[in-house]
Each structure stands twice: as structure tokens, then as C-alpha cells.
Design a protein around this nucleic acid. Structure first.
Lengths: 213, 213, 213, 213
DNA sequence: CATGAATGAGGTTTCATTCAT
DNA sequence: GATGAATGAAACCTCATTCAT
């Protein structure tokens, strides 16, 4: 659960000194995807020390030159990877927009967020650490807006207006607990969700189990 | 409040060739303190890019050679800085050992932890990110043991035994929410504690405000 | 007005693997012209750092592949640009071949050379610097021959034979003074010509103002 | 003859992003000198293509790291080399400040400038070309001021004030003619000076041979 | 012991050039 | 032909670490 998001038709995010080529041909799109996935895998399986542009290009089966065709520098690549993850979460969350309002929506939001982050827990955690090294965020809006919108429908806009720290706190609770679970090797999303819900309902001062299944 | 856990895929990072002086818990040496504080300040005010051994030594008014007298490598320095912070928290927490057992202890624990982390929020956050880059942890046990002991006295050993994820979850809730607050520029510890307690009491399934002042 | 000379320590720079189309004097091809003009503009307005083959092709509205259809390598492109400029000057100088011999011819030669170089002074200066990086020259002979022929008619072949350094010196005086003027932002060709003539007549030991209008 | 100069006690020129160490110990000074001389030699004997920081460090018998201890980037190194040359010329010109005023001073100025530039003609020429690639000048003052002062004493301040282009023109004549001579392999400074003087006296409208020896 | 100059592996990045489409 | 994605040698530069003084 991070607070940004790229539009599905992911285009280059500003950040670029020399505006690199956008992938115009299908081959180029494949290269970009391969590079992003290679970056994710290296971070996940080999950690920070191996997270070099040369290693990424090599694992992607691309040349280092290709990498720099599409990303003006390493930070932009990391940023793009973060946005790819955010965007995947965003896609899943969008399905909630059709659902009826109410507290049940929050329960679904939690499940999606937890499942998302538990899919590749090491990646999520290392991307967070890597993000702290990046120049301060500029984008971060689409996912945040989506989350706000869902929270509004789950809890009512009035409450959001009254308690401006509420979203930040919920994100922090979920993010922190899932990260810790991932770090400790947990993979039972259901058990984890139960515990997270306890904290969340407590925070919201909602009676326990507000929407029994 | 920091967690200790070795990820399943642990790797060795050869961080010990020449065991210098007293790498861990170096005794009240003015140079060592100056170096640690310089490291803290650089991380806080200039960020990761400036966090280099040469810059740290310079700001500490020491030579790079001296730095390496006291720390065998950069990771050990960062580790020592983390331990300095942990140990400062530990000192404060020790005062709780005299207090009577019971849920009120948890309330005091929360306050101390929040106030501690809110003192230098940027440092706390960046140290976390830096820690992720370190070879997997071995230390941090004293603080962890202390926390467990306090939790045991606050909640009862039986409950800790029954719910092994409880400490991890509480740490995560507190840590996550304080980090987020620090990042958003909050500095009102009282207001923050109120919100954290809501989540914590919820998680623990304790009635609201269990121990009125 | 450019000089041709291979430094004693000449070296080969392997600039010819696949002899493309018509590298030298490419015929009235719109793409070639566009490329050359794009190269000139980039050098003029953005300087050396931006003078890359990809940037040139892009500004010319051509693909990098097309660029390499017409020029075997970057040096050949730069060379062609130099020759384009030389040849423009040559065209103007050819009009002098009909004029009567005598010192008046030199005055006209000076005017044409000065006006030519002052048209795009930055380009002239940067092309000189770029030329120094090129493999030693082979071309530039047509312009050189033309200049020698005009000088011969202006000063008499006998004098040229007696003073072999004379052309080199005159070129250097004119080139150096115009370059400096361009660098300093001068654009008054007339005032500049007056000063150049003073040096030239002095060099030639000709009475001042040898051929009043 | 270039228009700048470093003070004899050469200190780092601004230009530096990260202010590199100034040489404090004699060993360091030797390294800096060795690097500068290595740069000069490579430019002179192997040309632009070989003028790389790695090659320079290697020829200097230093490591690449040492080079970057003293020069924040390659441009700063080139700049320092230019200033070293300017500074050497400046030292020689300073001896003229004791001489009596008058046109004879100009004759001596010319001789010194010509001899200086003919000492390492290839270096002078290639440094000029390299300078054109540098970010626009910031220093350039000390040598220029010295030259102005000598010119003032040679020609009278009144004339300098009346003809502001005069210094620029004289520099250009001398620089241009010596460069051309160097390029053509001339090494007879006396013969060259005779020709340069003809142009200079003509430019100045001074009777030929104003100060016979 | 302290100093700080020196080291150099290795990371990031550029850009001329190639070649499959 | 034209295109532009891909290539990769090689340049620049960093910074943890060593060691002569």
C-alpha cells in the first residue's frame, strides 16, 4: 500500500533530464517490461548489492544501452518499478468502485491491499527502502486519489473531513503490519487480515466485526 | 522500536576481515560519539547521498583513518548508530521495570516509544531504510528482550505465549504510525498517542481507555 | 577561410569501413541538406555537448539510420559541414576571378571573407574547434587553390613564390581577428574590415589604403 | 596568448560541485603536478582521442581516484591545465613590468608571447580547441589584466581607451599567426616575430621598425 | 595512534554505430 | 530505402578502504 499510481497506459513520468524515448513499437514495450521485471527479481532475490543497472539489463536480456533508452537514470527505473507495483494495486482497487458504499468496502479494501503486498513481500519491503533514497516524490497522486475515494465511500466523506489523519493512519497500520508479517515469513493472508482488522476497527472505534460474512 | 528477523534467504556479506578496536558498544570515547552524531546529522539533514564515510569523518572533526580505527567498515558504523538509538530508547524503557504490572504499563510503553521516535523522525525513518541494506541483523537483542519483558508484565506471559504474533504486530502498528506521522510533519505526540492507542486497544480487544489517568 | 595541413605526427583514425553513398559532396539531396543544417544549428545554438548524431538526425527530421545512409560516420558528417561552409565561401570568391588583377582584389577578398565568417560566427568558431578533433585533413583543396589563385592575381605570383608563408599569415590574421570579433559579439563588418586591413597592409608593407574606392 | 591566469599560488578555481581537497601535503602537490603534466603530454602526443581521465592518471603514475581527489571533473582538469599554461606565460610577462614604458615594451611582449606559444605549439593549439568545449569562462582575469597593463604602458592608456578593440585585435593577430606557424611546423621564432611585427605595426599605424635594436 | 593521500573495483551513463523489421 | 530499437565499448566518476608518513 503505497501512495501513488501511474495511469494504466503508463507513460514516462517527468523526472527525466533528457526525455528518453517512449516505447513506440511493441518490441520496445517488451524491453521495458523485461527490464522492470528483471529489476524486481534482482531486488527480490539478490538484494540491494546486486541491484545494479548492468545486472538488471543482463537479466532482462537487454543491453545496458537499451535500459538507458527508456530510463534516464537508475532512480527513474526504480521509480517506474514502484509505479508499476502501485499501478497493479490500483487496478485491483478499481473493482471496488462499483461496490455499494459502507464499511464492508473497507474490509474488501484491506483484503486487496494485504493480498497485494503479500504477493511479493520482499519486493514490497525493499522497494520501500529504495524509495527512501529517491528524490522526494512528485507523482503519488492517482493511487492516493483512488484510495481516498474508496475510503470516502466506506466511511463517509464527513468523517474523512473531520479526521484528516485517518487515511495516513490506516495506510500506516496496514503497511506496517503487512511488512512485518512479510519479513517474518508469514503467508497466511487470512490470519493476518483478522489481526489487521482488529487494529483497524479499534482505530475507527467501530464495533468488532461490523460486517459479518 | 525496531524489529529483528533474518529473512529466509539470508546471505553473508563478508563484513569482518580485521576486527578493529571495540566495534560494538565502544566505550565512552569522544571520537566515537562525535562520529556517530556526525553520521546521524548527515543522514538527517543531507540524506543518503551525503552519507559517506569521508563526509562523516569530516563532520565529526576526525580523520577517515580514525573512523576506521573504531569501526571496521561502514556497515558496522551504521549498525552502531542504530544501536545507539535503540539503547537510548532502552534506557528510557528500563524505568518501566519498577512499575506495577498491568495494562497501564503498556500505555506508558507507548508514550515512551512514540516520544522517542518523534524526537528525530527523519533519522528514524532513514535508519530503517539503511538497515534494510545491512547484512542481516544479529544484535538488537537487548532491546527486544526488554520489550518482551515489559509486554509480558503488561499483558501477562500467558497471552504472549498464546499470541506469538502480538509483539510483532504492536511494534508494527506503533512504528508504522509514528513513521507516517513524522513524515507528514506531525509533532504533537499526545494527539498521535491517542490515535495509536485506539488501534492498539482494538488489536488487543481491550475496552477503550482501559486505564484512565 | 580555413587552413589545410597535416601535423608532422599524423595518425590514421580508421574512419572508413563501409563506404556509404556519396560521402563527399553528396548531391542535392534534401535529406542531406537537412542533416547538415541541423548539425550546424545544433552546434551553433546548443554547443558541443548536444552535437550528437542522434540529435542531429532528430532535428533534421530524419532517422538515425538515414543519417548513416549518407555519412559513413560522424567525422564525415562534420567534414561535410565544413566543406559546405567552405564551398559557400568558394562560390562567393569565384566572382573575383573576373576582376582585374591588383591589390584592389585583395581588398575585395578580405571583405568577402569577413562577411562570410561573420554571418554565423559561432558556427565558424565551433567548426574550427571540431575540426581539430577530426582525422587530419585531406580535402579543403579546392578552396585553398582558389584562394591561392586570387592571391596570386592580387599580389603577383612572384611575391607568393618569394614569401611562401604569406598566404598562411594572411589567413591567420583574418581568421583570428574575425573569430575574436565574433566571440566578442561584433557584427559591424565594415569597422572590422578597416582594422583587418591595417594589419594586412602592414604585413604586406603596402602603403596605407592602397586602392581607394 | 590566452586571456586568463591563475595566481601563482594556484588554488582550486570555483567550478567545483563537490569542493575537492586542496593539496596540503607535498606529496599531494607532486601528484597534482604530475597529473597536469600527464594531461599536457597526452594531448600533445596522442591527441584528443587519448585524452581520457584514465589515461591521464595512468601516465601520471597516479590512480584515477587520485585524479578525482584534486579535480572535480574532467573539465576542471582541462581548465587547470589551461590556467597552468596561462600562469607560466604570466610569470614571464611580469618581468616586463619593471621595464620603461614605450613601444619597445610591445616588441618584448610579442617576443615573449611568441616564444611561449612556440614552446609547445601542439599543446597550445589543442588546448584552444578543448577550451571551446568548456563551459564559458569564469576566471580569465589575471592574465588579461596583466596584458592590459603592459599594453597600457606600451601604447599609452589614452590610446587603449580610444580604441577598445585594440587588445582583442592584437591578441588575435599574434595568436592566429603563431598557431598557424605551429601547425605548419615552424620553429624559427625570430622569423615569425618579424612577420608578426609587420602586421602589428601596420595595425597600430606605427612606422615600421619603431624601435630598432 | 592519527592523518589524509592514495587506491581501484565497479557503478552509472553516453553515444556512435548496427541491423532486424 | 527508411526506421528506430538495440548494442556495447568505453568514458566518467564515486567512495569504501588501505597504508605510508
Amino acid at each position: 500500500m503505497r501512495q501513488t499510481k501511474t495511469p494504466p497506459t503508463a507513460k514516462k513520468t517527468a523526472a527525466s533530464r533528457s526525455p528518453r524515448k517512449l516505447p513506440l513499437q511493441p518490441r520496445a514495450n517488451a524491453t521495458v517490461s523485461a527490464i522492470l521485471e528483471a529489476a524486481a527479481q534482482i531486488l527480490e532475490t539478490e538484494g540491494f548489492k546486486a541491484y545494479t543497472t548492468n545486472a538488471i539489463a543482463e537479466r532482462a536480456g537487454a543491453s545496458i544501452g537499451s535500459l538507458y533508452q527508456y530510463f534516464p537514470n537508475k532512480a527513474a527505473l526504480t521509480q517506474a518499478l514502484i509505479e508499476r507495483e502501485d499501478s497493479a494495486l490500483g487496478e485491483r482497487l478499481k473493482t471496488l468502485l462499483d461496490r455499494p458504499s459502507g464499511i464492508g468496502l473497507l474490509r474488501e479494501l484491506l483484503r486487496i491491499a494485504v493480498e497485494h503486498q503479500l504477493q511479493r513481500p520482499a519486493l514490497a519491503r525493499l522497494l520501500d527502502a529504495e524509495e527512501a533514497r529517491l528524490p522526494p516524490r512528485q507523482s503519488a497522486q492517482p493511487l492516493h486519489a483512488l484510495l481516498m475515494s474508496i475510503l470516502g465511500r466506506a466511511l463517509g466523506e464527513a468523517r474523512l473531513a473531520r479526521e484528516p489523519r485517518l487515511p495516513q493512519d490506516l495506510f500506516a497500520i496496514v503497511h506496517g503490519m503487512v511488512d512485518a508479517a512479510g519479513q517474518h515469513g508469514e503467508d497466511d493472508a487470512d490470519a493476518l487480515i483478522v489481526r489487521i482488522e482488529r487494529a483497524v476497527w479499534g482505530y475507527l472505534r467501530v464495533d468488532d466485526d461490523p460486517a459479518p460474512r
